[in-house]
Simulated assay, not measured.
Amino acid sequence: MAVNHFPSVMIITETRIGGDRATRICEDLPFDGFFVTDTIGYAEGLWLQWKKEKVDIFMLSSTEQEIHATVKLLLGDFNEVLSSEDKFGGRNINLNRALDFKECLDSCSLLDLGFSGPKFTWSNLRQVSDLILDRIDRCFANPSWRLLYPEASVTHLPRVFSDHCLVLLELSKAPPASINRPFCFQTMWLHHPGFLDVVREAWEHESILSSAIKLFTNKATLWNKTMFGNLFARKRRLLARINGT
């Protein structure tokens, strides 16, 4: 997670490691801010790590199972599902507990941020006949936070050495990578009287074949944008006018 996705904040749950050993491990990770909780024997344990140049986090309180900080977001393993759609296999869900969970979220005006990727975030790692899958790891935020980060998205990543999958929260979408589209000759160019001038200018200025072809493709691409523009956008606008929309 830290190497492939470069998060500003990373939370690791059920570490089963606390004390000085947890501190030493956190010091070797690429975060200069961290907070670890104690374990209960060889169970529980939470690590909260962050990059100080990216975010400001102030600790309020903590237990072996909870960390309260000033990040205005609620996320983690809630160990509870909201509906039968969040569960595969095993016993039926406890409707009273699910309703209590939903009532708590509604009273706090919290919105589920949704997700992409695998539907379930926890597995009992058994064979298919005894397999149980749950969606118990979630991200919630209030409406004001959602308005502040309208492009925020949650992705369920593959499980790695754990019964829980990794959950990645991104506050904004990465800019699309530029794509060098291959040159495509358009037959309609042959019917335009100005196209022969484009061809002539390219071949008259270059005597080397490869250079002439490169110059022609650049000039033809620019000429096409100037003369015809975005034909797909123009087609959509014309169809919309025809349909009266």
Rank of each mutant, 00 (worst) to 15 (best):
P182K: 02
H5P: 01
R159F: 00
D38T: 07
T37G: 00
R97F: 01
L166F: 14
I40S: 04
S116I: 14
H156Q: 10
A177K: 15
F228E: 04
P7T: 03
N243Q: 15
S210R: 11
L196S: 13
E170I: 07
K52D: 11
D86Y: 05
M59R: 06
S62I: 06
F6T: 13
K87F: 09
K214H: 14
R91P: 07
V128R: 04
D130Q: 14
S210I: 08
S129N: 12
K219G: 07
G90C: 02
N180Y: 06
P158S: 13
S129W: 09
Q186F: 06
R236T: 12
K52F: 04
N79T: 04
A141S: 15
G194N: 03
S144H: 11
V9Q: 01
H192D: 14
H5C: 02
S162T: 05
W203F: 05
K102L: 13
F216M: 09
N224V: 01
V160R: 14
K102F: 11
L190A: 07
G45V: 01
L46T: 00
N180F: 05
D20W: 08
S61Y: 07
S178Y: 12
G90R: 03
E14F: 00
E53D: 13
A177W: 12
R138V: 10
N180K: 10
D100E: 15
G90F: 00
T187K: 09
D86G: 03
V81N: 04
N243A: 12
R146T: 09
E206R: 10
R241W: 14
P30M: 01
N243C: 11
D197S: 06
W50R: 00
L60D: 05
S207W: 15
A240T: 09
P175M: 01
G89D: 11
G41D: 01
E64D: 10
I208R: 12
K54V: 04
G89F: 15
L231F: 02
D28P: 05
M1E: 05
F35W: 01
Y42M: 07
L222Y: 12
S62Q: 09
